[in-house]
């Protein structure tokens, strides 16, 4: 069966008072097949994150539906919802706030196993936790430690381990590296790619770094003001953009000339700070 694992149809979400609500996500549809990586790009506020949040159920969409294995979740039975909760996992943007500061690494990573009663015993749970920790490049020595003693990169690895522990088929990532130091971004991206290939995961990857998306994704969807302005195979969209917005995004990709690039990054950093 090669239909999409996860799909969205006509997702719409507004925020604010009913009279002048702001449509943050407007009629967004997409699908991801097994083992495929879909990138969602767009500037800040274009509705990428909200789209993801609607898909995983952190926000309730005003309209539209999420399909899991071709079945609409809205009408699904308990069993189906349960397997959705297990098969679709998420990695958050900021690893400094996505780990409970009062839980040890073992309880953080093992929580999904507890929730889904996936571990037969305490030892079985610990074995599985160690297994995923090793998968993400950490080891059993950190089991009893708390999040505060880790760097951003390590924290994000722990967050990825938490998502992988229950053996998902889809990984939804909301800008998983944009809160990290530039020096560890590549490591985490490669880890994600590695996991995706090893475990055959389908991945939905939200980012505003287009170079990253180009490196990572098979398909890409460009969003602006809550609307999908362009989508298609990654190579097509990047090499032959049809929409003006896509073209301007592409024009903003860093130039591989350290001097000019540095100047531009500095300017961008100043902008970001004053914003």
């Amino acid at each position: 069966m090669s239909g999409p694992i996860l799909a969205a149809r006509g997702l719409t979400k507004s925020f604010g008072p009913r009279r002048d609500a702001r449509r943050v996500v407007d009629d967004v549809s997409f699908s991801v097949g097994p083992g495929a990586i879909l990138g969602i790009v767009g500037e800040s506020g274009s509705g990428k994150s909200t789209t993801l949040r609607c898909v995983v159920g952190l926000e309730r969409a005003d309209a539209g539906e999420v399909l899991f294995d071709g079945v609409p979740l809205a009408g699904a039975d308990r069993e189906m919802r349960r397997s959705f909760r297990r098969d679709v996992q998420m990695v958050f943007q900021d690893p400094y706030s996505s780990l409970n500061p009062r839980m040890t690494v073992e309880t953080i990573v093992g929580e999904g196993l507890d929730i889904h009663r996936a571990a037969a015993s305490k030892q079985g749970r610990r074995d599985r936790v160690v297994e995923v920790l090793e998968l993400v490049g950490l080891d059993a020595t950190i089991l009893e430690r708390f999040p505060r003693s880790f760097s951003g990169g390590q924290r994000q690895r722990i967050a990825i381990a938490r998502a992988l522990a229950v053996g998902p088929r889809v990984l939804v990532c909301d800008e998983p590296v944009s809160a990290l130091d530039v020096s560890v971004q590549a490591q985490v991206v490669n880890l994600l790619l590695d996991m995706q290939q090893q475990l055959g995961l389908a991945v939905v990857f939200v980012a505003h770094d287009l170079a990253l998306v180009r490196h990572l994704c098979h398909e890409v969807m460009v969003m602006q003001h809550g609307v999908v302005v362009e989508d298609g195979a990654c190579a097509d969209v990047f090499d032959r953009p049809r929409h003006d917005y896509t073209k301007s995004l592409l024009a903003a990709i860093p130039i591989p000339d350290p001097e000019r690039d540095r100047a531009r990054r500095a300017a961008a950093a100043v902008d970001r700070r004053s914003a």
Binding site: V56, G57, L58, R82, R85, R86, V88, Q89, M90, F92, Q93, D94, S97, S98, L99, N100, P101, M103, E111, G112, I115, H116, A159, R162, V166
Partner: peptide, 22 residues
């Protein structure tokens, strides 16, 4: 509203579990 609570919700934690553990 903190991300670690959202992470627990995505994992499928019940309301009570979210409340008591997080």
């Amino acid at each position: 509203t903190s991300p670690y609570v959202e992470a627990a919700r995505v994992l499928g934690a019940s309301r009570w579990r979210v409340m008591l553990r997080h």
